[in-house]
């Protein structure tokens, strides 16, 4: 959670922020795809990303329900 608070909404009771487990095989597949597409991306330099965090999956807010205006 981001701040101390006296009351947490139900979905947060008993759990901290969703932790992402490394997925090295998928992360490598992504990096290979990025190389094949000749994209000049340095994902490992994105501060908010774990080295094994993936960007093609639905973990950590990359699914669409998080993008509603």
């Amino acid at each position: 959670m981001t701040v101390d608070t006296q009351v947490r909404p139900a979905i947060y009771v008993g759990q901290e922020r969703m932790a992402i487990a490394p997925a090295p095989k998928l992360a490598q597949w992504e990096r290979d795809l990025i190389e094949r597409l000749e994209l000049e991306w340095d994902l490992h330099k994105i501060e908010s990303m774990h080295p094994d965090e993936t960007i093609s999956g639905s973990g950590d807010g990359w699914d669409d329900c998080d993008y509603m205006p």
């Binding site: 009351v7 947490r8 909404p9 008993g14 759990q15 807010g61």
Partner: peptide, 28 residues
Amino acid sequence: GVMQAPAATTTVSEELLASESSLRVCPA
């Protein structure tokens, strides 16, 4: 949900059921 703090689906705990304010503060 919100992107700043995504939450995994979890089982309802006794702690949650005992927390009147957490249940009531918003729908889930």
